[in-house]
């Protein structure tokens, strides 16, 4: 993952690493070596199970919407790539994965302040207490699918 992060930064800086990054994505999604590949497999299995419970007419899936908290450390580009590779030649081939990333927010139990976390600092910016309750950022679920009926 750290190599990937370096490559992503390099990619954002529009350097030659763009090519390496693409090559890495290809390898990653083809093999089993990425976290995102097994996540994509789980998503596809759950969507297929959901479809089985539906009337046959609802078989053409257009969009799969997933909600992922920032704590889960998923790289959206990698998840998209893994998903797209894995759905080819399946009934989900025409579907698009839509990822909503939820930032981490917390509530301070000492001073009652609700805040968004910055740089994974799990203490209250108001009173510096670490007696906080994480409210969002741990989500990791498939919300809904959009089908053509």
């Amino acid at each position: 993952m750290s190599v990937l992060t370096i490559l992503r930064h390099a990619f954002q800086n529009k350097t030659i690493a763009f090519y390496c990054y693409n090559a890495y994505l290809k390898t990653a999604a083809c093999g089993k070596d990425m976290h995102e590949t097994s996540i994509a497999q789980n998503i596809i299995a759950i969507v297929q199970e959901t479809l089985k419970e539906q009337p046959a007419s609802a078989s053409s899936v257009k969009t799969v919407r997933v909600v992922i908290g920032e704590m889960i450390a998923v790289v959206p580009e990698l998840l998209h790539h893994a998903y797209d590779s894995l759905v080819s030649n399946t009934q989900l081939e025409q579907s698009r994965l839509e990822i909503s990333i939820i930032p981490i927010s917390a509530h301070c139990l000492s001073c009652d302040y609700t805040f968004g976390l910055k740089e994974f600092d799990f203490s209250c910016p108001g009173c510096h207490s670490s007696n906080i309750e994480v409210q969002t950022g741990n989500e990791f679920f498939i919300k809904e699918i959009e089908v053509e009926s």
């Binding site: 789980n42 959901t50 679920f141 498939i142 919300k143 699918i145 053509e148």
Partner: peptide
């Protein structure tokens, strides 16, 4: 187009 609610955890099997 119609929406089917799923609301299932990605890692539910695990």
């Amino acid at each position: 187009m119609s929406i089917i609610t799923v609301e299932r955890k990605v890692l539910e099997k695990n």
